[in-house]
Design a protein around this nucleic acid. Structure first.
Lengths: 192, 192
DNA sequence: AGCATATGCCAACGGCTGTTGACAAATGCA
DNA sequence: TGCATTTGTCAACAGCCGTTGGCATATGCT
């Protein structure tokens, strides 16, 4: 029996508590608005512990702002890719299980270059390849950029700015109204 | 000759310098990222002067973040409202004369509730009435919200996050690709 | 010229920030 | 039980922040 069992120590518990508190506060107030002391108070712990477990605020943020959009990378029905995308979007942002990684990132990206860089990484590594796998890879960047503009704008209005009419939209309305636009963007500009 | 001529005093000069420096730094770094000391240094002035002329940082920000989208409120050709809107958007964001009010606001709105409130005001007082004047006022909120989601998303990707493929789009491409989407949103969901 | 006013600089305040190191309590193995 | 390691608390650091009041200088009117 020389195998090393994971050994869930006590520190792992508080480590997770800190990370959860950080995720919540970063999502609510952004990188600058959430101080290490705030995170520590939310986790009912001393601020020094936050630094001990995560070595700096930057590293804590990096651990909190992990994003996996789980976009369909395999064969998708090209005729339904718009609806597939918008449904995936709603699950990512409103689903219960998924961490608030994307809202953390977007909340800080507008005024924090480090967070903005991570958003660009998500686009380059997750959104763009997915679009490239559908149609002509030559102008995949342009089409993926249009998709991102619509989806990030919807997220801004609905989850960050909370524009009343956009918050009031039902998931079905969003799928009906935005899905065809995404379809058009993914397939090419004159697919109508 | 009892008329009071405006009297451009020396203080008006530096007042304008401070405001210009504030606009630039707020646009680049957002509300939290631009300190009063930074603004003062940019204007080659003492930080105390910023407070003397504008009474607080909040008031300075309010003066800097003034937005007038100049949307067409009169008779617009309903068949060309999408193209009209996206052209207006490009002038507002890339035109030489217009102040950077909108980029100031958007940069800070994601992590600053005060700025977010002002964005909601711009939407309610400028975007929504314009959409309401075109089609059925009953669901003007929903349609205006969809328009805002596309335009704010485009602004985020092109001017704040600087997503490479979106930055690379030419104004003509944007007009061609996004115009029809706005047309669809303004007129109603099944106008194709 | 003399004086009131406008304009500007300087130093400091209280408060908050991320981060550090020293010390105390708890835990777990011998 | 004794001891080493882990887990946690406390106080303080240097540095920023918005804001304030006092004092020097410059301006402009009579």
């Amino acid at each position: 029996m020389t195998e090393n069992q994971p050994k869930i120590t006590k520190s792992d518990r508080t480590r997770a508590q800190i990370l959860e508190a950080a995720r919540q506060l970063f999502a609510e107030r952004g990188y600058d608005g959430a101080s290490i002391r705030d995170v520590a108070a939310q986790a009912s712990i001393d601020p020094a512990m936050v630094i001990r477990y995560f070595h700096s605020k930057d590293e804590l943020f990096a651990r909190a702002a992990v994003v996996d959009l789980q976009l369909p990378d395999q064969r998708v029905d090209p005729a339904a890719v718009g609806e597939t995308l918008i449904r995936r979007f709603l699950v990512n942002w409103e689903g219960p299980a998924n961490g608030p990684g994307m809202i953390i990132l977007l909340r800080s990206a507008a005024s924090n270059e480090h967070a903005a860089h991570k958003v660009r990484d998500v686009f380059a590594n997750q959104v763009r390849p997915m679009v490239a796998s559908i149609g002509d890879p030559a102008d995949a960047g342009r089409r993926a950029g249009l998709v991102a503009s619509q989806l990030l704008g919807l997220a801004m209005c609905r989850y960050l700015l909370r524009l009343e009419p956009v918050v009031a939209l039902s998931p079905e309305e969003i799928i009906r109204d935005v899905g065809p636009v995404l379809q058009r963007y993914v397939m090419g500009h004159d697919a109508h």
